[in-house]
Simulated scan of single mutants.
Amino acid sequence: MATARTARTVVAAALAAGLTVTALAAPALAADPAAPAAPAAAKKDHAATRAALQAAVDAGVPGAVAQARADGRSWTGTAGERGGDDRFRVGSITKTFTATVLLQLQAEGRLDLDDPVEKWLPGVVRGHGHDGRKVTVRQLLNHTSGIYNVTADPGFQEKVFGPAFLQHRYDRWTPRQLVAVAMEHAPDFAPGTSWNYSNTNYVLAGMVIEKVTGRPYGKAVENRIIKPLKLRATTVPGTDPTMPNPSSPAYSTLGGGPGAPVHDVSELSPTIAHAAGEMISDSRDLQTFYRALLQGRLLPKDGLREMTTAVDLSEQLPGAGYGLGLMKQKLSCGKEVWGHGGGIHGSLSEAYATRDGRHSLAANINADWTGDTQAILEGEFCGTLPKPVK
């Protein structure tokens, strides 16, 4: 869903790190904007991307994997204990899949993104100032709803992300239970007046899909995206806590930070994330998805235009914006990329592409207390070498 660690600010952490279902506030290595760019030849052989993967391992990450496609060619790099075909939990990258389905349903005339949430989920968004009659589906998707973030709730954090996780890792949560936790808190702001990343928004978005289609939201993702694009490594696990093969273990200190005991957290109940962050994929499939999306193969032109109409977040992070389940970043070299990041226990991911979809990258590290995924983006798209690990 979304962790609060990865890039240069809380915004980058919420977006680039995808804001996993966690709120782990661990220090992150940051790509050095002033670091020398690699020469053109090095960019072609992905030297800076390789260096960023190795830097993550040098910083204490057990393993890192990345795959890039450009100019019709594919490249895969690994460092540490990782395989190039590893599958991993993608966290908040799930949000782009969820948003895509809702935009497809709008294109079919089955709902309008400007419908109030109350129309589809009567009585669900109520309590402590929350009012589903004043929140639209669109505001869920671009995080302008003001709805409190369930993963910020102290009790939820303690049970799901702290040491108590080891006793509760297989607990099952219903979407309504997740929303109910959020409803115990006041809204962050009046709908449409500001921006704040909230995983609750996408739990609700998944519930809207289920109300419109009459089936689990994951079935819509499978039938509308996974099967047509032949994403063979991509799954919506539902209640299955296991990881498919091939995959490497996911490791976490459960909020303890560097030096704390490390735990294998590969198995967990995906229900803690639902449509905000439960999916599993690999680097190849994620690139296929984002390339197809940005090249107009999943949405009509109007739908893609709506998806890429972004809330301006440049005050928090220069050049950043958040559309409908899709983030825009302007990298240090001036290049603009679109995609999403994701973090969940023991897994931090990035999946981005240029607006034309011709150059793409997907990467993952199997730890959540250190390592700089933003540096991998900078390395691939800008040829920027990572800051040396001290």
Score class of each variant (00 low, 15 high):
G325Q: 04
W195V: 01
G214F: 00
A362S: 14
A28G: 06
G321H: 03
T354K: 00
G325A: 08
Y251M: 12
A52V: 11
P237F: 01
T144D: 06
P33K: 10
T234I: 03
Q329L: 15
T309D: 12
E118K: 13
L294D: 05
G259W: 06
I272S: 10
V389Q: 03
L326I: 15
A34F: 12
P163A: 14
G72R: 11
D71C: 15
R133N: 13
G162C: 10
A164N: 15
G146P: 05
L141S: 07
L348I: 15
F289H: 00
V124T: 04
P122K: 14
G109D: 09
T354M: 02
F97L: 14
G371W: 02
F156H: 01
Y352A: 01
A47S: 15
A250G: 02
L385Y: 11
P187G: 04
A310H: 10
T309A: 13
G325H: 09
G127F: 01
P191H: 04
G238P: 02
E315V: 15
T234D: 02
V135D: 06
S269M: 14
D153I: 05
N142Q: 09
L140G: 05
V311H: 00
P249E: 03
Y352E: 02
H128Q: 14
E184R: 15
V125T: 00
D32P: 07
A42W: 05
K159V: 14
L19G: 09
T308Y: 02
P237Y: 00
N199R: 01
T144R: 07
T136V: 09
R172P: 04
L324Y: 06
K387M: 11
L268E: 05
K134H: 13
D188T: 11
L113Y: 08
R172Q: 12
T22Q: 12
F165V: 05
R8P: 02
A363L: 02
D264W: 07
G341Y: 06
P300H: 04
H263T: 15
L348M: 15
A34M: 14
T151I: 07
Q106V: 11
P244T: 12
V57Y: 08
A182R: 02
G334A: 15
L53S: 04
E222A: 14
G319F: 05
S247M: 02
K230P: 08
N142R: 09
R126C: 07
